[in-house]
Each structure stands twice: as C-alpha cells, then as structure tokens.
C-alpha cells in the first residue's frame, strides 16, 4: 500500500515508533506535503556525481573472477559540485548522482524512487524505479542519463526525482539486517553479485564437455 504524502508528513513529524522512525533530512516542507494530496515526495539532487572513466576499461565482464574486475576507484571518477555550481550532462552521457536527502526507512516501510516526468520530457532520465528496502539509511544513488539532443545543466538542490513509500506487511524486524542497508552520502557503483545458479548457467566449460 502506497502511503499518501499527508500521512508521510504526519509520520515525519510524529513517528509511529520512536525507536524506528521514518526520517528524511533535510526535511521537506511538511505543511506543503499535507496539502499536496500527492502519493510521493519530491527529492532533490545532491552534490556528488560519479562518472565512468571510459578510457580505462575495454569491457566490463562481471563473469570474470572478482580479482580481475577493476575496482570502483579505477572504473569511476568522483565529482563534487557545491551548491550554486552546476553539472552539465551531455547528450548520451550517463552519470550517477545522489539525493540531497538522507533517508531512513523503518523496518515496516519500503520505497520506490522514480524520475519526474517534467525532467523526462526534456530528455533527463532518472533511474529505472530504484527499490529501497526496509531499514535502509543513507542517500539514494540516482542513475542520470541524458537521452535528449541538447546538453542539460543540473544543479544541486534541484527537485529531480520522487519517492513513493510503501507499507510492508508481515515482515519481522528481527530479520532486517540493517548493516546491509547503510548507504553513503556519495553515489556508489556497487558490485554486481552473481548467485550460484547464474554462475553455473554462465559457465561455458559445460558446453565443451
């Protein structure tokens, strides 16, 4: 069940469970939220960007041994853009951004982040419905891509995406491993983890037997 913005505003102001509150900081304007009638909250663009270093890597092959996959530091370059400054996203460019807001979800709430259609119509695509798990705390990494024909200037503090918060039913807080959901204030590439089945299916030695 998606929680209405007015209800979110009430939960932000008066947490349902003081030991496990929903937190968004910096906080949105709660009075505006109550009146909005919306089902989502707008989030702003943060100050950090992470771009891939195209010249360093010929091919990203996650099926190789973890030892030979380049580290995040080798694959990417981090940019800090202070408030007042901007980042120009050129056509067909892809960069990771981050929300300005640090979000903490209680163990009975999950969330989904999607772009804002007004940006999308200008060619700026933000993520592909990022899921946020119960117990998460941190800033959300955004996948920003300019699929339009003209460069787009984006500045920290701009409302760039929206978050829908859902109620999670039937969960047991004791099974929420919060250590897995500690985010950062910067965007991160993260590792692509292949499970055992994917590894077995991708193994071409089997074809040669």
């Amino acid at each position: 069940m998606i929680i209405n913005a007015g209800q979110i505003a009430r939960e932000l102001k008066h947490p349902l469970n003081a030991d496990d509150p929903l937190i968004i900081t910096p906080s949105p304007d709660l009075e505006e939220l109550k009146k909005s009638g919306s089902a989502s909250i707008d989030l702003r663009l943060g100050c950090w960007f992470l771009a891939c270093r195209a010249s360093r890597t010929g091919l990203l092959d996650v099926y190789k041994s973890q030892d030979v996959i380049p580290s995040e530091a080798k694959l990417t370059k981090s940019y800090y853009v202070p408030f007042g400054d901007g980042f120009v996203l050129h056509p067909r460019a892809f960069v990771l951004g981050v929300t300005l807001e640090w979000i903490r979800l209680p163990t009975d709430r999950s969330a989904m982040v999607i772009g804002r259609s007004s940006w999308g119509r200008h060619g700026l695509i933000i993520a592909t419905a990022t899921g946020v798990h119960p117990g998460f705390t941190g800033c959300l990494t955004l996948e920003l891509s300019n699929v339009g024909e003209i460069p787009i200037m984006i500045k920290p503090g701009t409302t760039i995406c929206q978050i829908f918060i859902h109620k999670v039913e039937g969960g047991d807080p004791k099974f929420v491993d919060q250590s897995s959901f500690i985010g950062s204030r910067k965007p991160t590439l993260g590792a692509i983890k292949l499970d055992e089945i994917a590894r077995l299916l991708a193994n071409d030695d089997f074809n040669n037997q």
């Binding site: 030991d19 900081t25 640090w102 705390t137 919060q178 500690i182 204030r185």
Partner: peptide
C-alpha cells in the same frame, strides 16, 4: 548513535 542519520 540511535538512528544512524545525520543531523535533522
């Protein structure tokens, strides 16, 4: 300590 969140 309690919430693992930055200042509000």
């Amino acid at each position: 300590r309690n919430m693992i969140v930055p200042t509000l």
